[in-house]
Simulated scan of single mutants.
Amino acid sequence: MRLLTYNIHKGIGGRDRRYDLGRVISVIANERPDLICLQEVADGIPRAGGVNQRDEFRRAFPGFEAIYQTNHCFRVGSYGNLVLSRWPIERAHDVCLRYLNRKKRGAQLVVVASPAGPVHVINWHLGLHESTRQWQASYLLEHHCYREAAHLPTIVVGDFNDWRNTLAAGPFSRHGLRQVTEPLHRFRSFPAYLAMSALDKIFCCPQVEVDRAHVVRSRLARDASDHLPLVLDFRLRHRVPRAEPSHHAVTQGAVPAEHLS
């Protein structure tokens, strides 16, 4: 099974600053993923063609189920996270990760019915401040929407903005999730045209067996966005019984009062 995670920068190239969503779609299609986790997917932003990009991705990947989460709104348009799955999505939650009055961030939690059994996938885009990221990771990993599926094979992916890599030894270690994207020098993904920082990461629980993880470094990928995509080839260590299908649910996680003082 193959998962791809990618901050697409709204389809705007990191080097030429040209909007061309077709380049992003080609980069993704060339990797032939089964699960696609995207960040900064635009909806109605003039600079990004003014289109609903989630619909563009649905057309580009027919047969994939799609779940979208709005994160940041502008005066005109917005952007957010998008999960596309070759297999049925049996459960889906949105969790708001806004910390204090800082920029709104979010996480998508989905349970996908893969051929080997259900897989719990988290797609997120974390904040720019160290204190914010520490709170966001801890809050999500202790959230009831995460805990209700934490017994399943779990994969956490996205743009972590964790350039110092402090989350691995903190919240993720406490919750038994290991970092797949290390050593860091092999997983530098930003800026795409001259990657120096490993901002995009993948964490897995012990039930997920990793065959290979790598950064896509093609010429097209270096031009299509300001981030490079990551690809994970994985298996489940043990077959897990299929989760009972349920309707998609959306849960907005409010910031606890003690964090607002």
Rank of each mutant, 00 (worst) to 15 (best):
L3E: 01
L4A: 01
N7H: 03
H9G: 00
K10T: 05
K10E: 05
G11A: 13
G14M: 07
R15N: 09
R18E: 03
R18P: 08
Y19N: 06
V27I: 06
P33R: 08
L35W: 06
C37F: 03
V41W: 01
G44Q: 07
G44E: 04
G44K: 04
I45L: 09
R47Y: 12
V51E: 10
V51T: 15
D55H: 14
E56N: 13
F57S: 04
R58V: 09
R59P: 03
F61K: 00
G63L: 05
F64Q: 07
A66L: 02
Y68I: 01
Y68G: 03
Q69T: 05
T70V: 12
T70Y: 08
N71F: 12
H72M: 07
C73A: 14
F74H: 09
G77L: 04
S78M: 10
G80I: 07
L82A: 03
L82M: 07
S85A: 01
I89Q: 06
R91S: 02
D94Y: 11
R98Q: 11
N101V: 14
N101K: 13
R105V: 02
G106D: 01
G106K: 09
A107Q: 06
A107D: 00
V110L: 10
V111M: 13
A113D: 09
A113P: 03
S114Q: 03
P115V: 08
G117T: 00
V119Q: 03
V121Y: 01
I122H: 00
I122P: 03
L126T: 05
E130W: 11
E130M: 05
Q134N: 11
Q134S: 12
S138T: 14
S138M: 11
Y139L: 09
L141P: 02
H144M: 07
Y146K: 12
Y146D: 03
A149P: 02
A150L: 07
H151Q: 14
P153N: 12
T154L: 01
T154S: 02
I155F: 02
V157R: 08
G158C: 04
F160P: 04
F160C: 08
W163L: 07
R164L: 15
T166D: 11
T166Q: 13
L167Q: 08
L167F: 05
F172K: 00
T181Q: 00
T181F: 02
A192K: 06
S197Y: 13
S197K: 15
A198S: 05
L199Q: 01
K201A: 05
K201H: 11
H214P: 06
V216P: 02
S218M: 06
R219W: 15
L220D: 14
L220A: 15
A221K: 09
R222E: 06
D223K: 15
D223N: 13
D223F: 10
D226C: 01
L230W: 00
V231Q: 05
L232R: 05
L232G: 01
L236G: 02
R237T: 07
H238M: 12
H238W: 12
V240D: 11
V240K: 10
P241Q: 14
E244S: 14
P245F: 08
H247G: 13
H247S: 15
V250Y: 12
Q252S: 13
G253N: 10
A254K: 15
A254T: 14
P256F: 05
A257C: 14
H259I: 12
H259V: 10
L260M: 15
S261M: 15
